[in-house]
Design a binder for these strands. Structure first.
Lengths: 347, 347
DNA sequence: ATTAGCACTCGCTTTAATTGAGTGCTAACA
DNA sequence: TGTTAGCACTCAATTAAAGCGAGTGCTAAT
């Protein structure tokens, strides 16, 4: 079926209304919305089509429609207009440029915090990183009969940790052996010198512990991957609780817990590939915890320091056009503020 | 009325039971609790006495009792026994000492994160600070007809901001004038050279804006106060949502929002006065947002760098004895790890 | 192709009834 | 005099039923 002009208008209207209200939107609501002067019955027919096409869904019979991930995707890719900042908004955001911050990382973090405050969005990001990080050392702390905490310390003294569950009982000789092995083979080796082969080598060497080694190496690999974007941060996490979709504490807790974990932020930040704005909608997210979230990500680059990432996170019902525009302004500001500055030495 | 031996036992039993279950505890529950072999009726009488003394309260008639702030206070000061770590607990925590972290601030933050992970408590803290901070510059960004965002940048490039509401309409000349004045008089002046007199002077000078100046100066004063403890952090904030007292999103949001604001954390950290453990229970807190929270705070000191603060935060129904013991272990560990290290230069 | 009309669906809200944990009080007992 | 068994009473929380109303799909007329 084809997406005719009128269907586009209706889809757009449904999505924009839903973004504002968080309530399923019915045919009458749309029909009263001037624009296209047709009756609710006509809208109903069109909406039934849109549902068949997978762009809208009904939470239950006899409820209005809400957009599906595909619906949002269509909207974002083909329908969405540029958000126009009001004069006062633009003034407010522009004024922030006056800030005379010299330390780049701190500047970005704080700029982010102020944006979060002014826009009421939650912002996640990573600071610009270089490419020669290494892991300083590994530690393993036994927790239960069959689990241990693996702690990884990077060159920047960033500590990452993860609880590893084994499928058999372990004792301190096991944890010691594993951590020794990791320290001997991987500690101090810069990222660029580590590849999968090296890791396979280790696995072969540790034949006996093969079965228990897999989760360990997975985590180690993750840590190595995230070495260059060394610091991640989040601003205004509690703003998520303003959204009715998180009026259920269980939901809120799952998301906040997910965001509390720096590893997850790292993975998110790493997923942005090029310099443009990337939008990840609902079920398009890899992490199951984010299946009801959308993320609008963009990268910025700082001369001599590499690239970092900044993005908004919120419910799928996010004001995409505003988020994109704001994000562009924000990254543009960062580029502006740093482009005429010499990169400072590592702190 | 006197707090007899039996009343003490009952009070302790009620509090400890409530700490575990978060449910009002009734007389029968206590009577079944061996210890003192009396019937529920007797317990009822005693509990009525304890209520009269202000140590217990009833959420409603026909419900069990819950401790009041005063009840917790009595418990903490006079009844509480030392928490005994189990062997596995102590092993687990001790192992963390092996971490070879060199940068003190980072170490403390990360140690804190791991403790939060292992104990399932939320931890707040501040890093050790020096005493010659200054404010680098001030900015004011108009937001509405009658409010503006005051932004303060410190020597460490920490940015603090607060929305200031005026009781009259303002325009950009006002905000400019105020920020100019602040920059001229206070920017670059180290903390020790600023006193209240100086601030009064400024107020006199700015006669015309007297009325609008008060909130501005209050905030500036706050910033100056917090200059030495320059960095605050929070670990495991989402763990608060595990507690049934925050199953109400509104409540949770209020608290998390409060903790999102670094100013508030600063104020909390600043409130610990001496080197020992300080416990602030429920309504003893200054901030209304914390009236249902308790905080167990302690300071640590690092040679040559001054003192910092670390503490647990949770609902009043907190396991005080465990929190105190854990905190002592944690600060002890910090002291241990840093005492034989030369302080490093400012980063 | 559009629309008015209508029967039908189903989540949400309101109200009423029921349950049960816990209390205070009284009277009996050691 | 302190303790205890017993009982009527209270009140939040749970459950069930009833009613509401927004919204749909379908049909027949325009």
């Amino acid at each position: 079926m084809d997406l005719g002009e009128r269907k586009k208008k209706i889809l757009g209207a449904v999505i924009e209304h839903y973004i504002r209200t968080a309530e399923p939107v019915g045919s009458r609501t749309i029909s009263k919305l001037d624009e296209l002067g047709v009756s609710s019955a006509t809208i109903r027919n069109e909406m039934a089509d849109l549902e068949e096409m997978g762009l809208l869904t009904q939470p239950h019979t006899s409820a209005g429609r809400i957009p599906s991930t595909m619906g949002y995707r269509t909207y974002v890719d083909r329908l969405m207009k540029n958000y126009e900042f009001s004069v006062s908004e633009i003034n407010r955001l522009r004024s922030l440029m006056e800030l005379q911050l010299t330390e780049v990382d701190s500047m970005i973090k704080e700029l982010t915090g102020i944006y979060s405050y002014l826009t009421n969005y939650t912002i996640v990001g990573s600071s610009a990183g270089n490419n020669n990080g290494y892991i300083k050392n590994f530690h393993m702390v036994q927790i239960d009969r069959n689990s241990a905490l693996l702690i990884v310390v990077t060159d920047k003294n960033i500590v990452k940790n993860k609880q590893i569950y084994f499928d058999c009982d372990i004792d301190s000789t096991v944890t010691e052996k594993i951590s020794n092995m990791l320290n001997e083979n991987l500690a101090g080796v810069v990222k660029s010198k580590i590849n999968l082969e090296k890791i396979y080598e280790i696995q072969a060497e540790m034949d006996i512990y093969k079965s228990v080694l897999l989760p360990v190496l997975n985590f180690v690999n993750e840590c190595i991957e995230s070495l260059d974007n060394s610091e991640v941060f989040i601003s205004g996490a509690s703003k998520l609780l303003d959204f009715p979709e998180y009026s259920n504490v269980q939901k809120a807790k799952e998301l906040l817990e997910f965001l509390d974990n720096k590893e997850n932020l790292h993975r998110m930040a790493a997923s942005v590939d090029n310099a443009d704005v990337k939008i990840i909608i609902g079920s398009e997210n890899d992490a199951i915890e984010l299946k009801d979230c959308s993320i609008v990500l963009s990268s910025y680059s700082i001369k001599g320091k590499g690239t970092g990432t900044i993005g908004f996170i919120g419910p799928t019902r996010m004001n995409y056009s505003k988020a994109v525009s704001t994000l562009k302004l924000l990254t543009g500001q960062i580029d502006n503020l740093t482009s005429n500055k010499e990169p400072e030495g590592e702190k």
